[in-house]
Write a protein that binds this DNA or RNA. Structure first.
Lengths: 343, 343
DNA sequence: TGTAAAAATGTAAACGTTTACATAAATAAC
DNA sequence: GTTATTTATGTAAACGTTTACATTTTTACA
């Protein structure tokens, strides 16, 4: 049986002896209604347990007030994105926005598919961590008048609101730490090099080596995708070298976990035989053995700021674009070893 | 500027020289339209890039065809639920359902809040892993005619479609493994005891001890919430005992990670000084040191079956309720030690 | 008290679909 | 070649809101 529908605005209006327009005004409180009337309507609303039908609201309302946001996430298995989701969610619901999440699993086709779905759901806005091949699509969204904020990475050759972290500096700090602790042969397992984030991290890595006069060896900069499997395989490749690195800097958490798997399966001691520092901290990084040294970026904070920006843009679509770059923090634990004073 | 709206059904109808009803029929293909007409309309649809507005569809359509599902997740930080989400998503989108996720962070108030939001979004159906205090609410949903499927746990005293795993057997297997490997003093860190899942796992734990004639010591069965912090603190409490356990069975992945943090911070060797086996496998459990022995339950599979069930119920709301119980699998790695043959 | 201005409320169209019902066109039966 | 059926299409109402505009009520001021 189809369930009974909820109470409608009309029913409230009838019971309160006013027109639907008045009830609507009470709810949205944009126009003033007389105190007495308002009270009466409010009472009926309570009494009947009326809740506006968001679907009808969205249908009627012009874009910018539909209270629905589309969120395109590259990989929900990655705890970093989960943090972002949490941050977005926390503040979005507080502002009465609902969120539709599309997790496209790093798949270009699915990403496009979701955009279409979300459009036809009449979202006001898109939050997207764009994947290679998305430039045109995202551009289209902006042109069509959607509010769009990019997270985690910007888009080459496109002006947009972006919230991300200082990948260059984060990578730099990590590698500098390895150097300070005595390493000179430091490998880098990077991600998909079509993603700006990846490129920035490579730059940071190279800059740190340069600063300390360590030659860059392209043989120990390896990269493919930003997933667990790549981490497993690329670390194996590095450790198989005749002249293997003594330390590895991994470009994200999934790569780190993959590398750890390989290192442990070979019975290598961390940090004695191989040190590791990864981009992305995880709330259980301390539960690893040894506790992982990592570059922390706050997904939660990224989420929070994103919603803020979105809010602003919906209110004023002509506001100039901004790019917010958050600082990262190096969390030193025990996976890199340490240098004794004076050594 | 508000962006241009999409192409409407009416525009298609005009261009094709037919009525909106006909176009609607072509799209939904419930009634037959003449081949010739259909072709013409299809052509215009392609040409104009028409996509139905799901909001309008949902407003007009009676429940059961709104193509929107509400998903209430207790804790998106828990990788197990992420797997469930992935499973649900994969099959849902294939059937043209969109998903709205509400992550209520184990908070009763927020759970209720989300239910209200989702109702006013006119979802067809709810998928919910109910939290204590939800019985009445979920019951209400069913009575109101929503299709509802519970995941991960059922609801006391309520007939419903449920998809879960055999928690009793999973726990039993884990503890039996510890016993087989030589442990007799086995502690259990359990979760929120208001949740059926937790209770079932405790039963399994006790049954295994009973089978081998090991006395149950209530002092080493501890439980509070199903989160990381509880894992950290409760394991500390256990290890502080004058007569600490030699093995710990943890009731879920967050508790496991918390316990690992404590164990490592005290420099205890696993499994020599303390063994651990946890409910919930994680794709990076192998990256832990030592690789974790764990009870695997397939969230992905749970998600898949859930959608299947939901689909069935929407199609036939009178179908009798079913309870699907999936098997778990003990993944033996290195966190429990092993017994030599003949010992 | 009467009139003008301001404030409060009502009326009805619109958003983009689906669908019951009515009508028109095609086919079948005679 | 009518008439009865069947098949294809059109018409218009409905879903639950918001909002421009019209109307009514109240207040202000003389």
């Amino acid at each position: 049986m189809a369930g009974q529908k909820g109470v409608s605005l009309k029913e409230v209006a009838d019971k309160a002896g006013v027109s639907t327009a008045t009830v609507s005004r009470v709810i949205n409180s944009k126009t003033v209604v007389k105190g007495e009337t308002e009270l009466r309507v409010q009472k009926v609303i309570k009494q009947l347990g009326y809740r506006p039908n968001r679907v009808a609201q969205r249908l009627r309302t012009t874009r910018g007030a539909s209270k629905l946001i589309g969120l395109l996430i590259p990989d929900i298995q990655n705890p970093f994105y989960v943090d972002i989701i949490r941050g977005i969610e926390q503040y979005a619901y507080a502002k009465n926005f609902a969120i539709v999440i599309g997790n496209f699993s790093q798949n270009e086709e699915r990403q496009k598919f979701y955009i279409e779905i979300l459009k036809s759901e009449s979202v006001d806005a898109f939050i997207v961590a764009p994947f290679p091949g998305m430039n045109e699509y995202v551009k289209e969204l902006v042109e069509e008048g959607y509010a769009v904020v990019c997270i985690d990475r910007g888009l080459a050759n496109m002006d947009l609101d972006v919230v991300k972290v200082d990948n260059y500096q984060g990578a730099f700090d990590a590698v500098e730490h390895l150097i300070n602790v005595g390493h000179t042969r430091i490998a880098h397992i990077s991600g998909n090099t079509l993603i700006p984030t990846t490129i920035e991290r490579i730059s940071g890595y190279e800059a740190a080596l340069n600063k300390y006069g360590i030659a860059i060896d392209r043989d120990i900069i390896v990269g493919r995708n930003s997933d667990h499997k790549s981490g497993v395989e690329l670390s194996a490749q590095l450790l198989d070298m005749s002249n293997p690195p003594t330390a590895i800097f991994t470009s994200n958490n999934l790569l780190t976990l993959g590398a750890l798997e390989t290192i442990h399966s070979r019975g290598l001691k961390i940090p004695e035989q191989v040190a590791i520092v990864g981009f992305d901290d995880m709330y259980w990084a301390m539960s690893l053995n040894p506790p992982l040294t990592a570059v922390r970026q706050s997904g939660f904070e990224i989420g929070r700021i994103t919603i803020e920006l979105l809010h602003q843009r919906i209110a004023d679509p002509t506001r100039p674009f901004v790019s917010i770059v958050l600082k990262t923090e190096l969390i030193v634990r025990n996976s890199c070893g340490f240098k004794l004073k004076g050594m």
